[in-house]
């Protein structure tokens, strides 16, 4: 897959509950953040976990989230940063 987000882009992590292994933590699903940077492109762990080769490879982004966007309340000056694969991200306004 080609990268389709750039640093500064607002994104939303998809909310989904797929069966099986995935590396998108539950607490970030459905939450809005901002692309910090593209880390690289990697085999899809959701397939690697079942002995498949993980194609198409997925772009992986460092995404930063405001505390209130994740938890719905304010905690002074706290942000959360996580690496999220592209197929879990969608554009956000």
């Amino acid at each position: 897959m080609k990268p389709c987000f750039a640093p500064g882009d607002p994104v939303r992590v998809r909310f989904a509950e797929p069966p099986g292994h995935c590396r998108t933590p539950y607490y970030l699903r459905g939450k809005r953040g901002v692309i910090e940077r593209l880390i690289g492109t990697y085999p899809n762990p959701e397939q690697l976990a079942y002995h498949r080769i993980g194609v198409p490879y997925q772009p992986l982004y460092q995404v930063t989230f405001g505390f209130d966007a994740v938890w719905g309340r304010t905690e002074h000056n706290v942000t959360i940063s996580a690496a999220i694969y592209q197929h879990w991200l969608e554009q956000s306004e």
Binding site: P25, L28, P45, L60, V78, T79, S81, A82, A83
Partner: peptide
């Protein structure tokens, strides 16, 4: 201090 941003980095993936 309150004016220091705390950024929690969750090592979720390949890094």
């Amino acid at each position: 201090a309150d004016d220091v941003e705390v950024r929690v980095v969750d090592s979720t993936a390949d890094t």
